[in-house]
């Protein structure tokens, strides 16, 4: 309760500082000149850094009509978000379908673990965006390339956590399954999967976090649709109000995605 109150107070302070800092009289000559120079001959008049009120106004306008579609460069925020979420969802789903079974295999077999470990160690630290040119070249479709990049960045935490969780299933539970002559598939689904589920879900949560970070960058790179493209497009329009609004939306949606997986995680978590 107290924490919530403090959060509200902090928010109020932050907004007040922002408000004071962006009061019209303070947007003096200095930065504006440089800004104009930077923008060269485009000669688009900016009215400085947007004030909280302008953001609120912009946000209201966007949220009042989130589904409009006026050509490739002007779509409502919900449509852009929808594209991003679809890409993340698809890439994430592919990663689950790939990483969980493979993680099972690696976790159950120490031999496979040691054989595949060097590959994972090398592939894991590669920035997912570094795959983009290859993806664009081979797939020749920017939309699918975005999905691929999400897949690539989601796959490692899930793979590693699944393998780790499966390898760490308590011996005594496996012994119970053995004395009950449980068939391999049933053992995998009824004993190993629930035992490793909390660890696997932790991996998924990390993956989702990374995927949501990466999708913005990926869409800035390939363009077309999506919340990342929206940000880039509004920057090109020098509409900082929309940029800031989009940043907030990205934050809120990311939080919501994390909350969703956290919910599922809580469902499968058990106390020993």
């Amino acid at each position: 309760m107290l924490a919530a109150l403090l959060s509200v107070v902090l928010l109020a302070i932050l907004i007040s500082i922002w408000h004071l800092a962006t009061l019209p009289k303070e947007t003096a000559a200095g930065p504006d000149d440089e800004y104009a120079k930077l923008m060269g001959k485009r000669t688009r008049k900016t009215d400085g850094f947007p004030t909280p009120l302008q953001i609120a106004e912009g946000a209201y306008r966007q949220l009042a009509d989130p589904f409009y579609d006026r050509g490739p460069n002007d779509k409502g925020i919900a449509i852009q978000l929808g594209h991003s979420l679809a890409r993340v969802g698809l890439g994430f789903l592919c990663a689950v379908l790939f990483a969980v079974p493979l993680g099972f295999l690696i976790g159950m077999s120490p031999l496979m673990y040691r054989a595949l470990d060097p590959f994972i160690q090398v592939l894991k630290p590669i920035s997912p965006l570094a795959w983009m040119p290859l993806a664009l070249y081979t797939i020749k479709d920017s939309a699918i390339s975005g999905v691929f990049v999400i897949f690539i960045c989601s796959v490692w935490p899930m793979l590693i956590n699944t393998a780790y969780g499966v390898a760490g299933v308590r011996r005594e539970w496996l012994n119970v399954a053995r004395t009950l002559e449980v068939k391999p598939l049933r053992k995998a689904l009824r004993v190993i999967l629930p035992a490793a589920a909390p660890t696997i879900l932790t991996g998924m949560r990390i993956s989702m976090g990374i995927a949501w970070l990466v999708i913005v960058a990926a869409e800035m790179l390939v363009g077309g649709t999506g919340i990342g493209y929206f940000v880039w497009n509004e920057w090109n329009n020098l509409n900082l109000t929309h940029v800031i609004f989009a940043i907030m939306v990205i934050g809120v949606v990311g939080m919501f995605l994390d909350f969703l997986i956290g919910r599922v995680q809580r469902l499968v978590t058990y106390v020993e």
Partner: peptide, 17 residues
């Protein structure tokens, strides 16, 4: 192991979930 021999383990070995 076999279903012919039922085992009660020293550390109960119940599935906590």
């Amino acid at each position: 192991p076999s279903l012919q021999r039922g085992v009660v383990f020293q550390g109960h070995a119940l599935m906590p979930w």
